[in-house]
Amino acid sequence: MNSLIYTTATRIIVPVTLVLAVIVLLRGHNDPGGGFIGGLLAALAVAILEKARGVDAARAWLRVEPLTIAGAGLVAAIAAGLWGALEHGMFLTGVWPFYGPNAAGVNEGVPAGSILLFDLGVFLVVVGGVSGILFTLEEAGVPAEQPDDEEDS
């Protein structure tokens, strides 16, 4: 993958995809999208970057070890659950500090809270997990003599 066009294109594609991923994550509660889809989009961005510039560059660009990202996501999701437990006495109950129905029953305010934190956790787990495996798979060496295992039975 040493195509100049491809490498140059990634300079635009990767940031755009990442922004898109965050947007998809944020709008997920009301429109198609959410943590899983956003996370996969972001992972795709990382994969594109990695294919264009190699594992080392991708790792440097990420700065954080991918599995750490995944772990942080899990911690965020659990924290969201504990938040609900503290607020409502039940693990994973949604907490909406700035959002809720007005007198007419229409929800208004800033839709951020434990649910968004949870979805962010999902997002991070997917990005971290997928890029972690991808990087390691890419780094895994090929032995000098590759056994030819052509099957014939």
Binding site: F36, L40, V126, G129, V130, I133, T136, L137
Partner: peptide, 13 residues
């Protein structure tokens, strides 16, 4: 789908 993908990655490794 996501879990299946995770499983697939693990199987691949």
């Amino acid at each position: 789908i996501v879990i299946g993908f995770g499983l697939f990655c693990f199987a691949l490794a």
